[in-house]
Simulated scan of single mutants.
Amino acid sequence: MNQPTARQAKQFNGIITLTSHAKERLRQRIGIEDIDAGIAWVRTNIERSKRKQNRGHQTHYFTDAYVIVMDGDKVVTVKPSFEANEHSKRLESLIEKEARKFLRLKKAELKKISIAVLETQINFLKAKNPNTIRSITEKLTKLTDEKANLETDIVAMKRAAEGFGVEV
């Protein structure tokens, strides 16, 4: 999890602005109507945030109860935290379980493919017949592509799980 450092928290010692949408959400969800109080609440919660996640040009700060979405020094919105919802916690554990299962299977496949690639490379080095070399080269290309696809799947699953706040 990404903890905001003191330096990151200090970057907001400048001017934080609230969009009209953020002002409305602070009023609806937190009960804060005063702009200065809203900015102070945002500063405090950014400093207390459990983790920080960059999504494109936006930064999401996760607290126990809320997610503060910033675009530079501008507060875009404040929304209830996925982590605060009991159903969400249940889903998070299911996501973690399925992601771990997927990764376990893909890593086992990757290990088998890696061994097959090495064995094929050894056969290639031993081969003398041009037809055999061509055949082994085609097989090696196919295995290498399959290995690359598995590695891509593993990275994609890890990133997808991170999007739900799950570390695998």
Rank of each mutant, 00 (worst) to 15 (best):
residue 68 I to L: 07
residue 129 N to M: 02
residue 8 Q to E: 13
residue 19 T to P: 05
residue 160 A to R: 13
residue 15 I to V: 12
residue 83 E to S: 05
residue 14 G to L: 00
residue 140 L to A: 02
residue 144 T to W: 08
residue 136 I to P: 04
residue 31 G to I: 03
residue 57 H to A: 10
residue 23 K to P: 03
residue 40 A to M: 04
residue 2 N to C: 09
residue 126 K to T: 05
residue 100 R to Q: 08
residue 147 K to N: 11
residue 152 T to M: 09
residue 120 T to L: 11
residue 41 W to M: 07
residue 121 Q to F: 03
residue 123 N to F: 11
residue 109 E to K: 08
residue 54 N to L: 07
residue 50 K to A: 11
residue 89 K to P: 02
residue 31 G to D: 05
residue 1 M to D: 08
residue 138 E to L: 14
residue 34 D to K: 10
residue 63 T to E: 03
residue 144 T to V: 08
residue 63 T to M: 03
residue 135 S to Q: 11
residue 119 E to H: 14
residue 50 K to N: 05
residue 130 P to T: 04
residue 28 Q to I: 12
residue 11 Q to W: 09
residue 146 E to Q: 14
residue 149 N to E: 15
residue 32 I to P: 01
residue 2 N to L: 11
residue 144 T to S: 15
residue 87 H to W: 11
residue 41 W to N: 07
residue 166 V to P: 02
residue 68 I to E: 07
residue 112 K to T: 15
residue 13 N to L: 03
residue 102 F to H: 14
residue 124 F to Q: 11
residue 147 K to S: 09
residue 42 V to H: 02
residue 36 D to E: 15
residue 146 E to P: 08
residue 39 I to Y: 00
residue 119 E to R: 15
residue 21 H to V: 02
residue 74 K to R: 15
residue 157 M to P: 01
residue 114 S to P: 00
residue 98 E to P: 08
residue 167 E to S: 14
residue 100 R to I: 08
residue 161 A to G: 00
residue 165 G to M: 05
residue 12 F to S: 01
residue 48 R to I: 03
residue 154 I to C: 08
residue 17 T to P: 03
residue 113 I to G: 00
residue 56 G to M: 12
residue 119 E to N: 15
residue 43 R to W: 03
residue 60 H to I: 10
residue 122 I to R: 14
residue 103 L to N: 00
residue 127 A to C: 06
residue 142 K to H: 10
residue 28 Q to P: 06
residue 105 L to Y: 07
residue 39 I to F: 02
residue 37 A to S: 08
residue 96 E to I: 10
residue 98 E to D: 10
residue 72 G to D: 03
residue 17 T to F: 01
residue 168 V to C: 11
residue 70 M to T: 02
residue 20 S to K: 14
residue 131 N to R: 11
residue 28 Q to S: 12
residue 87 H to V: 15
residue 58 Q to V: 14
residue 128 K to E: 14
residue 128 K to P: 06
residue 164 F to D: 05
residue 150 L to T: 04
residue 36 D to C: 02
residue 136 I to W: 09
residue 121 Q to G: 07
residue 88 S to K: 01
residue 97 K to D: 08
residue 118 L to A: 12
residue 61 Y to I: 06
residue 135 S to N: 10
residue 138 E to R: 10
residue 148 A to S: 14
residue 92 E to H: 09
residue 41 W to Y: 15
residue 15 I to E: 12
residue 94 L to M: 12
residue 167 E to H: 14
residue 164 F to P: 00
residue 150 L to N: 09
residue 32 I to L: 15
residue 133 I to Y: 03
residue 66 Y to D: 04
residue 106 K to D: 07
residue 48 R to P: 06
residue 8 Q to C: 05
residue 132 T to M: 13
residue 147 K to H: 13
residue 63 T to A: 02
residue 45 N to V: 00
residue 94 L to Y: 10
residue 96 E to H: 14
residue 136 I to R: 06
residue 127 A to M: 05
residue 18 L to C: 04
residue 158 K to L: 12
residue 104 R to Y: 11
residue 23 K to G: 05
residue 104 R to N: 12
residue 80 P to K: 08
residue 112 K to C: 09
residue 69 V to P: 05
residue 48 R to W: 00
residue 163 G to H: 04
residue 137 T to G: 07
residue 97 K to N: 04
residue 106 K to M: 12
residue 60 H to W: 11
residue 27 R to V: 12
residue 84 A to G: 13
residue 87 H to S: 11
residue 6 A to E: 14
residue 123 N to D: 15
residue 107 K to R: 15
